[in-house]
Amino acid sequence: MDEPEIKAAVKTYILNEYLPGEDPAALTDTTELMTTGILDSIAVLKVVTFLESHFGITLEPHEAVVENLNTLSAIARLVMSKKA
């Protein structure tokens, strides 16, 4: 799975779970999810659980930080590095 595919999968998940009815174009690769409050901390933890089960990875606590989870791009980079 490459970066665009990862982004697409995470985007679909977030749109369905947290932004139902939202125009998909409004959620870009660089939209800030956490620092703008689109996702609260509980939601982010659910995203983490999704990443772990969907991509078969396990995040260490020091990886579950804002910098790694704030945008679709950052999330995709994180998943790629874990799969590498």
Binding site: S41, I42, V44, L45, V48, T49, E52, T58, L59, E60, P61, H62, E63, A64, V65, V66, L69
Partner: peptide, 14 residues
């Protein structure tokens, strides 16, 4: 300092 990772530990990881 790191509430997110802390919660991640409590909830699921550790």
């Amino acid at each position: 300092e790191h509430p997110l990772s802390f919660a991640h530990c409590v909830y699921s990881r550790y």
